[in-house]
Nucleic acid binder design. Sequence first.
DNA 1: ATTGACATGAGGTACGTACCTCATTTAGGA
DNA 2: TCCTAAATGAGGTACGTACCTCATGTCAAT
Lengths: 342, 342
Amino acid sequence: MSRPTVNDLAKAAGVSLATIDRVLNSRPGVREQTIRRVNEAIERIGFVRDVTAANLARQRRYKFAFVLPDAPGEFVTLLRSAVNEAAAGPIVDRMDLTVATVPPNDPHFLVKTLRRLGASQIDGIAIFAPETPHVRDEIAHLKESGVAVVALVSDLPNTGRDHFVGIDNIAAGRTAGVLMGRFMREIRGSVLVLASSMQARANAERRLGFDQVMATQFGAIEVLPSLEGHNDPETIRRIISAVLDSRKDIAGIYSVGTGNGVLVDLLKEMGRDQDLVVIGHELTRNTRRALEDGVLDAVINQDTGHIARSALRVLRAKTDGIDILSSQERIRIEIIIRENLY
Amino acid sequence: MSRPTVNDLAKAAGVSLATIDRVLNSRPGVREQTIRRVNEAIERIGFVRDVTAANLARQRRYKFAFVLPDAPGEFVTLLRSAVNEAAAGPIVDRMDLTVATVPPNDPHFLVKTLRRLGASQIDGIAIFAPETPHVRDEIAHLKESGVAVVALVSDLPNTGRDHFVGIDNIAAGRTAGVLMGRFMREIRGSVLVLASSMQARANAERRLGFDQVMATQFGAIEVLPSLEGHNDPETIRRIISAVLDSRKDIAGIYSVGTGNGVLVDLLKEMGRDQDLVVIGHELTRNTRRALEDGVLDAVINQDTGHIARSALRVLRAKTDGIDILSSQERIRIEIIIRENLY
DNA sequence: ATTGACATGAGGTACGTACCTCATTTAGGA
DNA sequence: TCCTAAATGAGGTACGTACCTCATGTCAAT
C-alpha cells in the first residue's frame, strides 16, 4: 500500500542505507554483484525514488534554457510570451530558466551560444533553430555532457536530441490543403501561395503537404508557385496585388508562414476579403482578428503554451531519468475557425 | 535570489517559528495583530510556501475521486481510460485516486455516492453528472466541508463548484454547423440530425449552436428535427434509413452525440458513405476509422486526456490554495479531419 | 597468519516544513 | 502589585533522501 522508502529497499536488498545511496546515485566503490542485488530489489518491491524529497535534500535547481531566434515574426514573439507565461507558473518549481536569443541566420552565433550554455552547468536546453553540421556537432557535445536536448518547433532529426516538441509540418500543409479544397464551392481556379521564405524548412514542408493534397484530391485547382514576401510589407503588397490583378481565377490564398497582417489588410483594401478562401498558420493577434472579421477562413495552429510547457516537462523528465506521458506531449495540429477560437 | 523559508519569514515578522506555523496553518491561539504582522511579512519578502517540503513533512496524500456515469457510450469509456492513464503518470504523485461509477439516470444514487465520498475525508471530487436540486444541495455540503469540486464535461453552473473542465457545447454545435455549411458544394437540401437523446443537456446545446449557424449563415439548408436513437442500434438503423429513403434531398448528417459506429456502418451498407457531409463528435475508435475511410468528414472533439489531467491539476491546486494556469486548463473545441488525426 | 586495498556499514547532519510539548512572556483585571 | 489566562517562544522529532566521515568487514596476496 504505502510507497517503499530507501529504508525498505535496504532491508529488501540486505545492504545498508549508504550502499543504497551509492547505487542509486551511481557512486564509485560498489561491487557489480551488490549493484545487481540492489537493482533486483528495486524491481521486486517496486521502489520508486521520491524525486521531490531528493530535490529538497540536495537543494536541486534545474537549469534549463530556451534558445529562440531573434526573428521579426509574430510566432516567435508568441512563443517567447508562452515561455514567459510558463515561467510564471507552477511548472518551474525549483527551476532556473534562461531564454537566449540568437540571430536567425547565424549558425556561428548559435553554436557559440550552445557552447556557452553547455559550459554553465546547464541541465537541459530547448532549441528552436535549423539543423546545420556545426549545430549537430555541438549538440553531440551537449549530449556527451549529459545535457538534455529538446528540439523545439523545428525538428533536429540527425542530432541525437532527446525529444521533438512540435508538429509535423507536412501534415499541417495537408490539413490546409483539405480545408482549401473543401471550403471551395467549385473545384476550379487557382490558389496563390504566400511564404516569407521557402528556405525555412517548415514552410517547404507545409507547401509539400499542401501540394500533395491539392494534386490528389482537388486536381482541377491550380496551385501557383510560392510567392516570397521576406517579411517585407511592401514586397507582400506588391506581389499579392500583382497576381490578384492579373489573374481573375484566383479562388484561394494559402499563407504558409506568419506575417498575415499585411495580407489581411491588403485583401480588405482590394475588397477581396470575403470572396476568397484564405487559410493561414498560427493563431496570432492578427489572425485572430482576421478570423473574427471573416477574412481568414481557417488557421492551422500549434499552441505555443502547450509547446513551452511540454518542453519544460520533457527536459525535467529527461534530467530526472523518468518517463514522459506521450499523449500529453503530442503537440496537436489545430484547426481554428471563428466558432472554436480560444 | 534564493527562495525565503519559514525561518526568513519568522525573522521578517519578528516572531518565532511556532507562531509562523500557527499562522500559516490557521491554528488557534494567535492574536489578530500577530496574524496581520505575519501576513504583511509574507507580502514584503515574497514568501511562498514550499508545498512539496510540506507534503513530505506531513505525509500528505491527496484523496481525489472521479464520479463518472455508468453509461453505454464510447465517450465515457474513453474518459475512464483517460483517467486511468493519468492515474499511471507523474501527475498523481502523493494522490489516492478513486473512480466511482453511478447509473446515469439515478440522481438518488449519485447523491448517495457524493455523500459517501464526502464522509471519507475526500479532498476533491470531479463530477460528470447532470445538475439536479439534490445534487446541488449535496455539492453545497461538500463545499462547506472544504472539499474541492470540479464539474467535468457537463457544467454544474448553479452549484458553487470550483471549476468547470469541459467545452462550451453551444460553440461546439456552431463549429459543426460552420463545417457542415462550408463543406457543402451547394447551399441547398437538408441535414439530418441524430442524437442519442435530446434530454442530455450537451446534446441540446450542440443542437442549439448548430441551428444558430445554419439559420444565419446557410439559410437555404433545412435542418430536420432531431432523431433520437437512444443508443439502440436497431432504432438508429430504422430511423436513419427511413429518412434517407424517403427524402432525396439529404445532403448532410450531424450526429450530435456519440455512438457513431452504427451510423457509419449503415451509411456504408446503403452506399451513402461518400456523398454526404457527415459530422460527428468525439474522437473514438469508430470515428477515427470513419475519418480514415472518408465516411466522416470531421469530428468535433474534446481531448479526454487533457480533461482528466486538467481536473487533477485543478483539484490539487484548489486543495493547496494556489492558482491554476488558466491557459493550460482551457479545454479546446478541436476540429479533427483525416489529415490532423492524432 | 598478516597486511593492504576495496567494499560496506553506522551514524550524523542537512533540506523546508509540520507538529508536538512545555517553558516563558504578555496583557488585562482585581 | 499580584494573579491568571492567553499568547508566544524554544526545542525536539518526523518526513525521505542526499551526502559526508570514519569504523568495520571482506578478500586476495604474501
